[in-house]
Computed example of a mutant assay.
Amino acid sequence: MWTRKGDWLECSIPNFWSGLTIEQLLKNVWAASKKLAHRWRMEHGVKRNGEAVSWQTVLRERDRLQLHAYAPEPSLTVPEYRELSLLWEDDHLLVVNKEAGIDVHPSEPGQTGTLANAVSFYLQSQAILTKVRHIHRLDRDTSGAILFAKHPLAGATLDRMLAQRAIKRTYIALVHGRLSAKSGTISAPIGRDRHHPTRRRVSRTGARAVTHYRVLETFPAASLVELTLDTGRTHQIRVHLAHLGHPLVGDTLYGGQPVFHRHALHAAKLTFRHPFTNEEVVCLAPTDDFPVPLPSVDSKEHR
C-alpha cells in the first residue's frame, strides 16, 4: 500500500480511509503535529494524485496520496556505526532488540555510544536524514524491544498510541524470593527520592503508576515474572517490585543482590496495530543474556 519515492511516501487510499478529507486523515487519524501540518501546508508537502489540493478535498478509494515525509531535519545525534538487531522494519517504523548496557539516547550533545547514534547511522544509510525518534525508553541495563519512528508523522501518531495504551509492552523479570500471590496488580504512585539523584520511590504525592504481574516459574530463591504496565514511569517495574519486597536480581539500586552482572529485566514483547497499514505487529525479542531460560511470551495480554 505504501511506496517510498525519494523523500516522499505514497499510498493508494484503501476503502477504510475513503470519504475522509486530507485534513481529517492527517489530524484525526494520524495525529499530525501543528508544526508539521503548518510546514506541509506552506511547502505543499501533501499531494493527491501528484497535485497540491485543498486539505478539505475528500479522498476516494485508490486515490494516490503523497507525503513529504523524509524532509531532512537538523539533528544533534551523531551517526555512529553499531550492529543492530532488527525485529521489524518498514518505511514508517523500526523495532530494535536493545542489548543491556547501552543507553537509548545521548544525555548531552555530541555523545556517542548510544542506541540512537546507531539508529541515526542506520537511517542515514537508507538516505533518511530525519531526527531519531524513540517512542519509548528502556533503562541502560534493560534489554529488549524498543520502537523508533522513521519520520515525524509516524512519531506523532505512535506517541499518541502509546499515550492511549494502544502499544502493549510485555516484560520478563527475575526477582528475589517467591511471590505469595501468583498474579496481581501493584498500584502505587512513584516520585523522586530526594536522598538520591537517580533513584525513584513509592510516594503518596508521586505520579500514578500501575503494574500487572504474573508468576511464570519459581525457583528456590527467586521467581520469574511476566509484567505489563498501565503507565510508564521511570524505573516503574524496578520500584514496584522492590516495594513488594521482591527486587530484581542484580538491581543493586533497589535492593537486589549483585549475583548477575545487570538487573534481570527484559522487554520481551511489543504489540500494536500499525497506524499506516492497519496490520497487527507482534515483535518478540530474544535474549541470550539472562540468568535463566525464558519461556515464550503468551500472545494474550495479561490483566
Rank of each mutant, 00 (worst) to 15 (best):
A173R: 01
P14R: 13
A242C: 02
S296L: 10
P293S: 14
S33T: 09
S299Q: 15
I13L: 08
S143Y: 01
A149P: 06
A127R: 11
P220L: 07
R233D: 02
H151P: 00
E23A: 09
K35D: 11
E80G: 07
Q126L: 13
V297T: 10
V210F: 02
G184V: 01
W40D: 08
M161C: 00
T234L: 14
K168H: 12
P258M: 11
T205F: 05
A221L: 06
H263N: 08
T114S: 05
K300D: 12
G19D: 10
A156K: 13
A268Q: 14
W40P: 04
L123I: 07
L87S: 05
D63A: 02
F290G: 00
A52W: 15
I190Q: 05
L294I: 14
L9K: 03
G184I: 04
F16A: 01
V95W: 02
V297N: 12
A69E: 01
E23C: 08
S143E: 04
S183H: 14
N49C: 09
P258Q: 04
L227R: 05
H243M: 13
E301L: 11
S120D: 14
H44W: 05
R262A: 01
S18M: 02
R4Y: 02
L94Q: 02
G232P: 09
P220K: 04
S18V: 08
G144R: 01
L265G: 04
S12M: 01
A145Y: 02
V210H: 02
L93D: 06
D63E: 04
G256I: 07
R233G: 04
E280D: 13
S75E: 10
A149G: 01
V104H: 07
P189W: 09
E99R: 15
Q24K: 13
M161Q: 15
D103M: 11
D139C: 00
S120N: 15
A181S: 14
P109I: 12
H134N: 10
R133H: 14
T3P: 00
V239F: 12
T21W: 05
V239K: 07
H263Y: 11
R204Q: 13
A209P: 08
R199C: 05
T130Q: 13
R262C: 06
L36G: 05
P152F: 08
E99S: 13
E61I: 01
L265M: 03
F290W: 10
S125K: 12
G19T: 03
V78S: 06
I237H: 00
L153E: 00
A181L: 14
L147H: 10
N49P: 10
S187W: 01
W2L: 07
E83L: 13
Y70G: 04
E43G: 00
E226R: 09
R133Y: 15
D230R: 07
V215Y: 00
L65I: 12
